[in-house]
Nucleic acid binder design. Structure first.
Lengths: 74, 74
DNA sequence: TTATAATATAATGAC
DNA sequence: GTCATTATATTATT
């Protein structure tokens, strides 16, 4: 396995990134896109990051969380 | 899906801690700080706790309540 | 009654 | 899956 510090995570191990709440407009855009494509490739994630002004790794985390939480709806 | 009693609440469920009224000086300091930073990290909360002589979890509760009070004025 | 301290839980960001 | 932080609803006390 790779080290616990993956390439897309700029923070050193053991430090938790500052909690940032997404703005409603950003959330709306992400939800809308997720409905169309839950598994965007790196190019798409980078485009979303530019358009919404969110770091790429946050986009990645958001889609990961969204996938797992979509599944436990029952 | 947080657990019932989260980490910032050291009392077991069903037990209510004693009501504590903040002194005017403590309230003033909290309000002043809140204006600068409504979401202090754990290190900052611990510093405030030391300086104002208030337990850390009460600091946390005050900031949470202050956020909702702020929102209700609109 | 109003203000606010305190409890509990849901939603969600980060890991 | 797990933990941490924020948001919100509610209860209780001064």
């Amino acid at each position: 396995m790779a080290s616990t510090c993956t390439s897309w995570s700029p923070l050193p191990c053991g430090f938790r990134r500052r909690w940032l709440v997404l703005k409603p407009m950003q959330q709306g855009a992400l939800h809308a896109f997720f409905q169309r494509n839950p598994y965007p490739g790196i190019a798409t994630r980078e485009r979303l990051a530019r358009e919404l002004d969110i770091p790429v790794f946050r986009i990645q985390v958001w889609f990961q969380n969204q996938c797992t939480r979509q599944l436990r709806q029952s």
